[in-house]
Protein backbone atom coordinates (compact mmCIF):
# COMPACT_ATOMS: atom_id res chain seq x y z
CA UNK A 1 0.00 0.00 0.00
CA UNK A 2 1.85 3.08 -1.15
CA UNK A 3 1.33 6.15 0.91
CA UNK A 4 0.90 9.44 -0.76
CA UNK A 5 4.18 11.18 -0.12
CA UNK A 6 3.27 14.59 1.13
CA UNK A 7 6.65 16.21 1.06
CA UNK A 8 5.11 19.36 -0.30
CA UNK A 9 4.70 21.78 2.52
CA UNK A 10 1.66 24.07 2.47
CA UNK A 11 2.71 27.58 1.52
CA UNK A 12 1.62 29.12 4.82
CA UNK A 13 4.14 26.97 6.63
CA UNK A 14 7.13 27.62 4.38
CA UNK A 15 7.93 30.68 6.47
CA UNK A 16 8.72 28.37 9.33
CA UNK A 17 11.87 27.44 7.55
CA UNK A 18 14.05 24.38 7.32
CA UNK A 19 13.04 22.93 10.69
CA UNK A 20 9.50 22.55 9.45
CA UNK A 21 10.68 20.33 6.63
CA UNK A 22 12.46 18.05 9.07
CA UNK A 23 9.46 17.93 11.38
CA UNK A 24 7.16 17.07 8.51
CA UNK A 25 9.46 14.28 7.41
CA UNK A 26 9.65 12.80 10.88
CA UNK A 27 5.88 13.04 11.27
CA UNK A 28 5.53 11.15 8.05
CA UNK A 29 7.87 8.45 9.24
CA UNK A 30 5.88 8.12 12.45
CA UNK A 31 2.67 7.74 10.53
CA UNK A 32 4.26 5.14 8.34
CA UNK A 33 5.42 3.11 11.31
CA UNK A 34 2.03 3.42 12.94
CA UNK A 35 0.54 2.08 9.71
CA UNK A 36 2.85 -0.93 9.80
CA UNK A 37 2.02 -1.65 13.41
CA UNK A 38 -1.70 -1.50 12.84
CA UNK A 39 -1.49 -3.55 9.70
CA UNK A 40 0.31 -6.19 11.72
CA UNK A 41 -2.32 -6.11 14.44
CA UNK A 42 -5.13 -6.48 11.95
CA UNK A 43 -3.34 -9.32 10.20
CA UNK A 44 -2.70 -11.22 13.39
CA UNK A 45 -6.32 -10.82 14.46
CA UNK A 46 -7.55 -12.31 11.23
CA UNK A 47 -5.10 -15.17 11.55
CA UNK A 48 -6.42 -15.90 15.01
CA UNK A 49 -9.44 -17.66 13.53
CA UNK A 50 -7.16 -19.93 11.56
CA UNK A 51 -5.05 -20.61 14.63
CA UNK A 52 -8.09 -21.38 16.76
CA UNK A 53 -9.45 -23.92 14.31
CA UNK A 54 -6.08 -25.60 14.11
CA UNK A 55 -5.71 -25.58 17.89
CA UNK A 56 -9.16 -27.01 18.43
CA UNK A 57 -8.42 -29.82 16.02
CA UNK A 58 -5.05 -30.40 17.62
CA UNK A 59 -6.34 -30.53 21.18
CA UNK A 60 -9.31 -32.73 20.41
CA UNK A 61 -7.20 -35.11 18.40
CA UNK A 62 -4.47 -35.10 21.02
CA UNK A 63 -6.90 -36.25 23.67
CA UNK A 64 -8.84 -38.53 21.39
CA UNK A 65 -6.26 -40.38 19.35
CA UNK A 66 -4.62 -42.18 22.27
CA UNK A 67 -7.96 -43.88 22.79
CA UNK A 68 -7.41 -45.93 19.68
CA UNK A 69 -4.35 -47.50 21.19
CA UNK A 70 -6.58 -49.47 23.51
CA UNK A 71 -9.67 -49.80 21.37
CA UNK A 72 -9.85 -50.36 17.65
CA UNK A 73 -11.83 -48.13 15.36
CA UNK A 74 -14.43 -50.72 14.37
CA UNK A 75 -14.94 -51.65 18.03
CA UNK A 76 -15.56 -48.01 18.75
CA UNK A 77 -17.82 -47.26 15.85
CA UNK A 78 -19.78 -50.41 15.39
CA UNK A 79 -20.35 -51.64 18.91
CA UNK A 80 -23.49 -50.68 20.79
CA UNK A 81 -22.13 -51.60 24.17
CA UNK A 82 -21.13 -48.51 26.10
CA UNK A 83 -20.13 -49.56 29.59
CA UNK A 84 -17.07 -47.60 30.58
CA UNK A 85 -17.32 -48.30 34.29
CA UNK A 86 -17.79 -52.03 34.28
CA UNK A 87 -15.09 -54.58 34.98
CA UNK A 88 -14.83 -55.30 31.32
CA UNK A 89 -15.22 -51.81 29.94
CA UNK A 90 -16.62 -51.36 26.49
CA UNK A 91 -16.68 -48.18 24.47
CA UNK A 92 -18.99 -48.73 21.58
CA UNK A 93 -20.71 -45.56 20.43
CA UNK A 94 -22.96 -47.02 17.77
CA UNK A 95 -26.12 -46.44 19.83
CA UNK A 96 -25.22 -42.80 20.21
CA UNK A 97 -24.31 -42.36 16.58
CA UNK A 98 -27.57 -43.95 15.57
CA UNK A 99 -29.52 -41.87 18.06
CA UNK A 100 -27.90 -38.72 16.69
CA UNK A 101 -28.63 -39.79 13.16
CA UNK A 102 -32.23 -40.69 13.95
CA UNK A 103 -33.03 -37.50 15.79
CA UNK A 104 -31.34 -35.41 13.12
CA UNK A 105 -33.09 -37.07 10.21
CA UNK A 106 -36.45 -37.08 11.93
CA UNK A 107 -36.17 -33.40 12.83
CA UNK A 108 -35.32 -32.67 9.21
CA UNK A 109 -38.38 -34.58 8.04
CA UNK A 110 -40.57 -32.58 10.40
CA UNK A 111 -38.98 -29.25 9.64
CA UNK A 112 -38.53 -29.40 5.89
CA UNK A 113 -42.13 -29.19 4.65
CA UNK A 114 -43.15 -26.28 6.86
CA UNK A 115 -39.85 -24.46 6.30
CA UNK A 116 -39.76 -24.88 2.55
CA UNK A 117 -43.41 -23.97 2.08
CA UNK A 118 -43.00 -20.95 4.36
CA UNK A 119 -39.91 -19.91 2.42
CA UNK A 120 -41.87 -20.15 -0.83
CA UNK A 121 -44.71 -18.12 0.63
CA UNK A 122 -42.31 -15.52 2.04
CA UNK A 123 -40.37 -15.03 -1.16
CA UNK A 124 -43.18 -15.21 -3.68
CA UNK A 125 -46.49 -14.32 -2.09
CA UNK A 126 -46.18 -12.38 1.13
CA UNK A 127 -46.84 -8.69 0.96
CA UNK A 128 -44.47 -6.32 2.73
CA UNK A 129 -46.26 -6.16 6.03
CA UNK A 130 -46.96 -9.85 6.40
CA UNK A 131 -43.45 -10.61 5.15
CA UNK A 132 -42.02 -8.50 7.95
CA UNK A 133 -44.17 -10.20 10.52
CA UNK A 134 -43.15 -13.64 9.31
CA UNK A 135 -39.49 -12.70 9.17
CA UNK A 136 -39.54 -11.26 12.66
CA UNK A 137 -41.16 -14.44 13.88
CA UNK A 138 -38.43 -16.53 12.31
CA UNK A 139 -35.81 -14.27 13.86
CA UNK A 140 -37.46 -14.76 17.22
CA UNK A 141 -37.26 -18.52 16.84
CA UNK A 142 -33.63 -18.22 15.96
CA UNK A 143 -32.83 -16.21 19.04
CA UNK A 144 -34.28 -18.56 21.63
CA UNK A 145 -31.46 -20.22 23.58
CA UNK A 146 -31.27 -24.02 23.46
CA UNK A 147 -31.79 -24.40 27.18
CA UNK A 148 -35.13 -22.62 26.90
CA UNK A 149 -36.09 -24.88 24.00
CA UNK A 150 -35.27 -27.76 26.32
CA UNK A 151 -37.43 -26.38 29.12
CA UNK A 152 -40.33 -25.77 26.76
CA UNK A 153 -39.85 -29.29 25.47
CA UNK A 154 -40.16 -30.69 28.97
CA UNK A 155 -43.25 -28.66 29.74
CA UNK A 156 -45.17 -28.93 26.47
CA UNK A 157 -43.86 -31.63 24.15
CA UNK A 158 -43.04 -34.37 26.62
CA UNK A 159 -46.46 -34.49 28.31
CA UNK A 160 -48.24 -34.52 24.97
CA UNK A 161 -46.08 -37.35 23.64
CA UNK A 162 -46.63 -39.21 26.88
CA UNK A 163 -50.37 -38.90 26.58
CA UNK A 164 -50.60 -39.72 22.89
CA UNK A 165 -47.96 -42.37 22.52
CA UNK A 166 -47.35 -43.80 25.94
CA UNK A 167 -44.01 -44.22 27.63
CA UNK A 168 -42.72 -41.44 29.80
CA UNK A 169 -42.65 -38.84 27.10
CA UNK A 170 -38.90 -38.32 27.07
CA UNK A 171 -38.29 -39.81 23.71
CA UNK A 172 -36.93 -39.73 20.20
CA UNK A 173 -40.17 -38.13 19.10
CA UNK A 174 -39.97 -35.33 21.65
CA UNK A 175 -36.35 -34.63 20.84
CA UNK A 176 -37.05 -34.58 17.11
CA UNK A 177 -39.97 -32.22 17.50
CA UNK A 178 -37.98 -29.78 19.59
CA UNK A 179 -34.97 -29.99 17.30
CA UNK A 180 -37.11 -29.49 14.20
CA UNK A 181 -38.39 -26.18 15.53
CA UNK A 182 -34.83 -25.14 16.27
CA UNK A 183 -33.62 -25.75 12.74
CA UNK A 184 -36.57 -24.19 10.91
CA UNK A 185 -35.09 -20.66 10.85
CA UNK A 186 -31.92 -21.93 9.18
CA UNK A 187 -33.81 -23.66 6.40
CA UNK A 188 -36.28 -20.82 5.92
CA UNK A 189 -33.69 -18.04 5.72
CA UNK A 190 -31.27 -19.64 3.29
CA UNK A 191 -34.02 -21.18 1.14
CA UNK A 192 -35.83 -17.87 0.92
CA UNK A 193 -32.80 -16.07 -0.50
CA UNK A 194 -32.20 -18.85 -3.00
CA UNK A 195 -35.78 -18.74 -4.21
CA UNK A 196 -35.67 -14.98 -4.47
CA UNK A 197 -32.56 -15.25 -6.59
CA UNK A 198 -34.33 -17.25 -9.27
CA UNK A 199 -34.66 -15.10 -12.38
CA UNK A 200 -37.95 -13.36 -13.01
CA UNK A 201 -37.61 -14.09 -16.72
CA UNK A 202 -37.93 -17.83 -16.46
CA UNK A 203 -40.87 -17.50 -14.09
CA UNK A 204 -42.57 -15.37 -16.72
CA UNK A 205 -41.67 -17.87 -19.40
CA UNK A 206 -43.41 -20.62 -17.46
CA UNK A 207 -46.53 -18.55 -16.81
CA UNK A 208 -46.72 -17.51 -20.45
CA UNK A 209 -46.91 -21.16 -21.38
CA UNK A 210 -49.99 -21.56 -19.25
CA UNK A 211 -48.48 -23.05 -16.13
CA UNK A 212 -50.28 -22.48 -12.86
CA UNK A 213 -48.40 -21.46 -9.73
CA UNK A 214 -47.86 -24.97 -8.44
CA UNK A 215 -46.35 -26.04 -11.77
CA UNK A 216 -44.15 -22.99 -12.12
CA UNK A 217 -42.85 -23.42 -8.60
CA UNK A 218 -42.24 -27.15 -8.70
CA UNK A 219 -40.97 -27.39 -12.27
CA UNK A 220 -38.96 -24.20 -12.64
CA UNK A 221 -38.41 -22.23 -9.43
CA UNK A 222 -37.48 -24.99 -7.00
CA UNK A 223 -35.13 -26.79 -9.43
CA UNK A 224 -33.35 -23.49 -10.05
CA UNK A 225 -33.07 -22.81 -6.33
CA UNK A 226 -32.04 -26.37 -5.62
CA UNK A 227 -28.42 -25.67 -4.70
CA UNK A 228 -29.38 -23.02 -2.20
CA UNK A 229 -32.04 -25.19 -0.66
CA UNK A 230 -29.61 -28.10 -0.36
CA UNK A 231 -27.15 -25.75 1.35
CA UNK A 232 -29.80 -24.72 3.84
CA UNK A 233 -30.54 -28.36 4.61
CA UNK A 234 -26.90 -29.19 5.17
CA UNK A 235 -26.46 -26.17 7.43
CA UNK A 236 -29.50 -27.32 9.37
CA UNK A 237 -28.04 -30.82 9.61
CA UNK A 238 -24.87 -29.38 11.09
CA UNK A 239 -26.82 -27.44 13.65
CA UNK A 240 -28.89 -30.47 14.58
CA UNK A 241 -25.94 -32.82 14.95
CA UNK A 242 -24.11 -30.39 17.20
CA UNK A 243 -27.06 -29.60 19.46
CA UNK A 244 -26.55 -30.63 23.04
CA UNK A 245 -28.61 -28.91 25.73
CA UNK A 246 -32.06 -29.06 24.20
CA UNK A 247 -31.90 -32.74 23.32
CA UNK A 248 -30.31 -33.49 26.66
CA UNK A 249 -33.41 -32.25 28.40
CA UNK A 250 -35.99 -34.15 26.37
CA UNK A 251 -34.38 -37.29 25.02
CA UNK A 252 -34.26 -39.16 28.29
CA UNK A 253 -30.51 -39.76 28.27
CA UNK A 254 -30.67 -43.54 28.46
CA UNK A 255 -27.67 -45.10 26.73
CA UNK A 256 -29.83 -47.59 24.89
CA UNK A 257 -30.22 -48.47 21.28
CA UNK A 258 -33.18 -46.33 20.26
CA UNK A 259 -35.75 -48.76 18.97
CA UNK A 260 -38.80 -46.67 18.40
CA UNK A 261 -40.28 -43.21 18.48
CA UNK A 262 -41.10 -43.44 22.15
CA UNK A 263 -37.82 -44.87 23.31
CA UNK A 264 -35.34 -42.80 25.22
CA UNK A 265 -31.92 -42.39 23.83
CA UNK A 266 -28.68 -40.49 24.00
CA UNK A 267 -26.97 -38.67 21.20
CA UNK A 268 -23.23 -38.43 20.76
CA UNK A 269 -23.24 -34.89 22.13
CA UNK A 270 -25.33 -35.89 25.12
CA UNK A 271 -22.93 -38.69 25.90
CA UNK A 272 -19.98 -36.37 25.89
CA UNK A 273 -21.66 -33.87 28.18
CA UNK A 274 -23.02 -36.46 30.57
CA UNK A 275 -19.90 -38.51 31.14
CA UNK A 276 -17.28 -35.80 30.97
CA UNK A 277 -17.94 -34.68 34.50
CA UNK A 278 -16.56 -37.88 35.98
CA UNK A 279 -14.63 -39.56 33.24
CA UNK A 280 -10.96 -40.27 33.52
CA UNK A 281 -8.28 -42.17 31.68
CA UNK A 282 -9.46 -44.27 28.77
CA UNK A 283 -13.04 -43.23 29.43
CA UNK A 284 -12.13 -39.61 28.94
CA UNK A 285 -10.15 -40.42 25.84
CA UNK A 286 -13.20 -42.22 24.52
CA UNK A 287 -15.24 -39.08 24.99
CA UNK A 288 -12.68 -37.11 23.08
CA UNK A 289 -12.69 -39.72 20.40
CA UNK A 290 -16.45 -39.11 20.19
CA UNK A 291 -15.70 -35.40 19.87
CA UNK A 292 -13.33 -36.21 17.05
CA UNK A 293 -16.12 -38.07 15.32
CA UNK A 294 -18.43 -35.12 15.78
CA UNK A 295 -15.82 -32.67 14.58
CA UNK A 296 -15.02 -34.68 11.48
CA UNK A 297 -18.71 -34.98 10.59
CA UNK A 298 -19.11 -31.24 10.84
CA UNK A 299 -16.02 -30.69 8.69
CA UNK A 300 -17.42 -33.01 6.04
CA UNK A 301 -20.73 -31.15 6.02
CA UNK A 302 -18.84 -27.87 5.76
CA UNK A 303 -16.92 -29.24 2.83
CA UNK A 304 -20.14 -30.19 1.07
CA UNK A 305 -21.52 -26.69 1.55
CA UNK A 306 -18.39 -25.15 0.07
CA UNK A 307 -18.52 -27.53 -2.87
CA UNK A 308 -22.16 -26.63 -3.46
CA UNK A 309 -21.66 -22.90 -3.28
CA UNK A 310 -18.49 -22.76 -5.33
CA UNK A 311 -19.78 -24.90 -8.15
CA UNK A 312 -22.37 -22.25 -8.87
CA UNK A 313 -19.79 -19.52 -9.19
CA UNK A 314 -17.76 -21.28 -11.85
CA UNK A 315 -20.57 -20.79 -14.34
Amino acid sequence: MALLESTNIPSTLIKRGKSEKNDAASRLRMRESKEMVFKGIFLISSLLSVVVVILISAFIFKEGLPFFKSVSVPEFLFNTRWKPSSDNPSYGVLSFVLASAEVTLLSLIFALPISLLSAIYLSMYAKDRSANVIRSTVELLQGIPSVIYGILGIAIVVPVVRRLFGGNGYSLLSASIVLSIMIMPTIINVSESSIRAVGEDIKLGSIALGANDFQTITRVVLPSAFKGIMTSIILALGRAIGETTAVLLVFGNAPLFPKGLTSMGRTLTMNIVTDMSYAEGVHMNALFASSMLLFISILILNFIVVALTHKGRKR
Binding site: S46, V50, V52, I56, G242, E243, I272, S291, N302
Partner: peptide, 29 residues
Protein backbone atom coordinates in the same frame (compact mmCIF):
# COMPACT_ATOMS: atom_id res chain seq x y z
CA UNK B 1 -6.10 -4.82 3.41
CA UNK B 2 -6.40 -8.27 1.93
CA UNK B 3 -6.72 -8.47 -1.83
CA UNK B 4 -9.10 -10.81 -3.56
CA UNK B 5 -7.16 -13.99 -3.73
CA UNK B 6 -6.02 -17.12 -2.09
CA UNK B 7 -5.10 -15.71 1.29
CA UNK B 8 -8.45 -14.07 1.75
CA UNK B 9 -10.36 -17.16 0.66
CA UNK B 10 -8.16 -19.25 2.93
CA UNK B 11 -8.87 -17.22 6.03
CA UNK B 12 -12.55 -16.87 5.21
CA UNK B 13 -12.94 -20.59 4.88
CA UNK B 14 -11.48 -21.09 8.34
CA UNK B 15 -13.88 -18.53 9.71
CA UNK B 16 -16.71 -20.47 8.14
CA UNK B 17 -15.48 -23.68 9.74
CA UNK B 18 -15.24 -21.92 13.08
CA UNK B 19 -18.83 -20.77 12.81
CA UNK B 20 -20.03 -24.32 12.25
CA UNK B 21 -18.29 -25.95 15.18
CA UNK B 22 -20.80 -27.14 17.78
CA UNK B 23 -20.76 -25.34 21.11
CA UNK B 24 -19.92 -28.51 23.03
CA UNK B 25 -16.62 -28.74 21.20
CA UNK B 26 -15.84 -25.15 22.08
CA UNK B 27 -16.64 -26.11 25.64
CA UNK B 28 -14.24 -29.05 25.59
CA UNK B 29 -11.56 -26.94 23.97
Amino acid sequence: YAKEGRFREFVKSFIEVLSGIPSIIFGLF
